[in-house]
Amino acid sequence: MEIRDASVAELVVAVQGGSRIAFTGLYERFHRVVHAVVLARVHAGDAGDVVQDVFADAWAKLATLREPAAFPGWILAMARNRATDHARRRHPISDDTADLAVAPPPTSEAAAALRAIRELPETYRETLIMRLVEGLTGPEIALRTGMTPDSVRVHLHRGIKLLREKLGGQP
């Protein structure tokens, strides 16, 4: 099985059989959406570690996933839980100076834009970060989250409209 050509369900089955290579395949496909989910709740400086924790958890628990095709929703739910837990125990998201603790440091304008996205309703936060931060297209987001393309499109358009209002027309 070529990792690149395998379906998500095939990769999951392979990982459940102990394949680490297949697991790297899942990571390649999902690390950006997982990061987006985490970044919607956690400072940028901490998000990378939380992403690694999520995948470590996934590696340990993947055997309990009964329906391999449900992997996208499963790992994103895990990411939401991990990120929420981290935010409660560590840093309030309102302290945005920690967003600058990444290399290379982003501009304060970038930190402000990220903060504006985080202030949007939860429904739109993740999708907008997947699109604007991670650079995924709408169809790619649908594929990696399990959402329908229609839902993704709606989230993007509603979200960008709200973001535009928050930023006062300034990107």
């Binding site: 690390h31 940028a44 290379p104 501009t107 931060v133 650079g135």
Partner: peptide, 12 residues
């Protein structure tokens, strides 16, 4: 503006 926050780290 926001691309600097994108995730690029490999899997540990």
């Amino acid at each position: 503006l926001l691309g600097g926050f994108a995730h690029q780290a490999p899997l540990r």
